[in-house]
Design a protein around this nucleic acid. Structure first.
Lengths: 209, 209, 209, 209
DNA sequence: AATGAATGAGACTTCATTCAT
DNA sequence: CATGAATGAAGTCTCATTCAT
């Protein structure tokens, strides 16, 4: 499902360890400079790797961006999966899912900006791959909604895909508008109000009962 | 309020005319390639200007991006102003404002993506300038909300700035998720449901009564 | 017939003038270092052009090699054409052709080595193009031979294409074995003996009569 | 006489066996890519050796090219020696020598191209060494000619070194023009006609009489 | 006002070679 | 003897920008 990226290095553990370093380093560098202004030298330095050794773990600068984006969408997928394991009730699952997305967004807002800012710098195929992951996330929410509606009744937003997109997109406000939100509201205020806003918007009550 | 951009050319009309051409050309080029992959050659060609003459109307490539972004946020500001002229009632003004943002977003979704994708490529000061415009837009909505609450009663979202941000941000889903939305819903469906979603979310009834 | 090479520069005369400079410079540099060891910096310096300006007249380093090879095969073609204008008699045309090739080879032996040494460094299509020129040269000799045989009688080498190849190839000994020939024989000795060798070989008498 | 090449490895048989593998591998790789485009990785892979182990049998990439060239000129020397053992008569020895060169050229045309294409990529000293071998080959033919002239009479080509060079060079047409020859003549036709051409050229009758 | 040519800085990437195990 | 990982040097090319006309 993920695109595999060739490496000159055999040792699998080493590869994934170094790639982690590279991804983390790249995130820092990309945040500070953006993908295009970032140089492979910067990334290498930040990852404690020589510039040439970098290329033993990655084939191109574009690969690094892909790795970063893959990591970032992975955050959602993991976060959502973890929550869904814990709940069986459709209502709890739906609001749990939303809570998860929102929490992840808040926790990783600095990195996740990249997912919105730099996706278009991906190579075409890489981009398709990443969008497919987002699509999958939407699909997951679409199913949660379907289950909810089957159990509880219809949402206020009739098209389930639209509703799903709203649930996965609105939390991004935290990453993309933090510069404004943070100067006018407290963290918990922001989290609670956005959470409530989305539930109200799609017509779901926050509590079971 | 707007940053002024130096030009070598005296003739004022010519400057603003050419700059319009340049902005429109740049929008097309940026959409196709992104700011960084776009070259001044491309932009010049698309604008029917020689590459060197371009530099009589603009000092750097960054200036072009600034002009583009300025133009794009201007779309909001104009759109909003036009609506507010027509309504005096706080409730009508609030939902009118939302309607306007959403309509503009839908109409210009292709260009407005740039505002989300390329803002971070702006020079620091230019960026601040553009964010200030967005901030101003938020301020406008904040005031609309205050007037509404004074007249009708409190919103479901208690922090007005958060509410304002939600109203100006959520419509962007249309630009940023069109690739997914458009394959699962019709245009009018999308528009109506997002509109209703936001109103529900902040706790405003769609109709005056 | 020739592959055209894009240039950023409009002025046609300037382009061809600079390209001449570049070709001459490249020949010197390639002779000293070979194509692969030669850097675009060296070529540019030798041509009195900045390294970056070089790229306004040529798209890639490979283009330069193509230009060089094209120039070199051109030497044959021109040389041959000039001679053939002057003779109508089939016998005179045939030995005149051979004389021309040999003379050109001797005169330009230093450069023409490149045609044998670096052809394989050409991009596939460029290579095809250059080989086609050589093929054309062979074709020309093939026709000269046919005319000769029609007028005088059959050659000792029965396959005309083989004979043509021998006539165009053997003179290359001068370029490829100069290091040995030059230490054991005088220039005029070399020229005369190779000329006689080829004529004897294909069975043509050196003098008309 | 041959330049010796250092090796880290004591076991002599292993060294020469591996070097054979390396030479054969390198020939394949060089033919496909040329010396400069060939990487030590490719060569190592083709020779079933790790890239680093390669360096236990060879000191530099240039060494490999030298070994290849040495192997290639060796083909001539062996071929010639074998023939000369069998003939005592000066005439038979001369035409036998020519036949041998031509046969080897035809048999190994694909590899021997390298000798003409890549010699200039050799390090200066290596190159000198290889040219010395070619020179030796010319010397051998020069002696064969001297013996022939002593026994039979003067050749048509008066300078013996020039004649020797022609005898060792002309057969190379087979390697360097195969792309054209092969599409216009059959193998045996090519062989016979070139053989006859050279003998005619230098003024030797093909048969003893 | 407009043009065409020129420039300098720098980025990505490749590869022969070495080192530690 | 053999291996896998690491390295440093270098080269091609692009592009925003300027200059002279």
């Amino acid at each position: 499902m993920k695109r595999s990226i060739d490496s000159q290095v055999r040792n699998h553990d080493l590869v994934s360890q170094r790639r982690d370093d590279i991804v983390q380093a790249a995130i820092r560098v990309f945040r500070a400079n953006g993908f295009h202004e970032a140089t492979t030298r910067m990334i290498a330095r930040e990852a404690n790797v020589t510039q040439s050794n970098l290329y033993n773990y990655v084939r191109t600068k574009g690969d690094i961006l892909y790795l970063v984006c893959e990591h970032l969408v992975g955050l959602y997928e993991e976060g959502l999966a973890k929550v869904l394991e814990q709940h069986a009730d459709p209502h709890a699952r739906l609001i749990g899912g939303l809570r998860a997305i929102l929490a992840i967004m808040l926790q990783h807002k600095d990195e996740l900006v990249l997912l919105y800012n730099e996706t278009h710098a991906l190579a075409k195929d890489d981009r398709r791959q990443i969008l497919k992951s987002v699509s999958r996330l939407n699909g997951a929410f679409q199913r949660l909604i379907a289950e909810y509606e089957a159990a509880v009744g219809p949402l206020a937003v009739s098209n389930r895909r639209v509703a799903a997109n709203l649930m996965t997109f609105v939390p991004a406000i935290v990453a993309l508008r933090w510069w404004d939100l943070s100067t006018h509201a407290r963290w918990d205020e922001i989290e609670d109000q956005i959470f409530a806003f989305v539930l109200n918007g799609i017509g779901v009550s926050p509590k079971t009962g």
